[in-house]
Simulated assay, not measured.
Amino acid sequence: MFEKMQRAFWKALTPDLIVDEPKVAAPSAPGLAANVVAALGGVDNLKSQQPVALTRVRVELRDVGRMNRQALNLAGVPGVMMLEGGVVHLITGLQP
């Protein structure tokens, strides 16, 4: 933390001499594979996600119509359980 503060201090004093660090893209949805996120309608369609059990992930979607069940099956999600209010349970099974 001290190093970041020191770097910010010198950057403020000499903005042309200290090069900004490249920004690393944050993971789109931790715990979900990219192809599963795409099948759910993209990262902007996800309100929340949380593991419910070893074999299930609870996802809240903004627009359920953007979800593609066939793409979810191809991504390795064998079951999808639809609930009210845009809540979807992905039955993932025990992943090796």
Rank of each mutant, 00 (worst) to 15 (best):
1 M>D: 05
1 M>Q: 04
1 M>T: 03
2 F>P: 09
2 F>S: 15
2 F>D: 14
2 F>R: 14
3 E>N: 08
3 E>C: 04
4 K>D: 11
4 K>W: 08
5 M>A: 15
6 Q>P: 03
6 Q>L: 14
8 A>T: 05
10 W>Q: 02
10 W>C: 00
10 W>P: 00
11 K>M: 11
12 A>G: 02
14 T>F: 12
14 T>H: 12
15 P>N: 05
15 P>S: 07
15 P>V: 09
15 P>M: 08
15 P>H: 07
16 D>K: 01
17 L>M: 06
18 I>V: 12
18 I>T: 06
19 V>A: 13
19 V>N: 13
20 D>K: 00
20 D>S: 01
20 D>I: 00
20 D>Q: 00
20 D>E: 03
21 E>F: 10
21 E>V: 14
21 E>S: 15
21 E>Q: 15
21 E>D: 13
21 E>T: 15
22 P>V: 08
22 P>A: 11
23 K>P: 12
23 K>I: 15
23 K>D: 15
25 A>Y: 05
25 A>L: 12
25 A>W: 03
26 A>C: 02
28 S>N: 04
30 P>Q: 13
31 G>Y: 01
31 G>W: 00
32 L>I: 03
34 A>Q: 07
35 N>T: 11
36 V>S: 00
36 V>T: 05
36 V>P: 00
36 V>F: 01
38 A>V: 06
40 L>E: 02
40 L>W: 03
40 L>H: 02
41 G>F: 01
41 G>Q: 04
41 G>T: 03
42 G>N: 05
43 V>P: 10
44 D>M: 00
45 N>R: 01
45 N>H: 03
45 N>K: 00
46 L>Y: 12
47 K>Y: 12
47 K>I: 15
48 S>R: 07
49 Q>E: 09
49 Q>Y: 11
54 L>H: 13
54 L>S: 14
54 L>I: 14
57 V>F: 10
57 V>W: 11
58 R>I: 08
59 V>G: 05
60 E>V: 12
60 E>L: 08
60 E>R: 08
61 L>A: 05
61 L>G: 06
61 L>K: 05
61 L>E: 07
61 L>V: 10
61 L>T: 06
62 R>K: 14
63 D>W: 01
63 D>N: 09
64 V>A: 15
65 G>Q: 14
65 G>R: 15
65 G>T: 13
66 R>C: 04
66 R>H: 08
67 M>E: 07
67 M>H: 09
68 N>S: 11
68 N>C: 07
69 R>D: 07
70 Q>M: 15
71 A>I: 09
71 A>V: 09
72 L>C: 05
73 N>I: 13
73 N>H: 10
73 N>D: 12
74 L>A: 12
74 L>I: 06
75 A>G: 06
75 A>W: 06
75 A>C: 07
76 G>I: 02
77 V>A: 03
78 P>E: 03
79 G>M: 13
79 G>W: 04
79 G>L: 12
79 G>A: 15
79 G>I: 08
80 V>K: 04
82 M>C: 00
83 L>G: 15
83 L>M: 15
86 G>C: 05
87 V>L: 13
87 V>Q: 09
88 V>C: 06
88 V>T: 06
88 V>R: 03
89 H>T: 13
89 H>K: 09
90 L>Y: 02
92 T>I: 15
93 G>F: 10
93 G>Y: 13
93 G>H: 08
93 G>L: 10
93 G>M: 10
94 L>T: 11
96 P>M: 07
96 P>R: 07
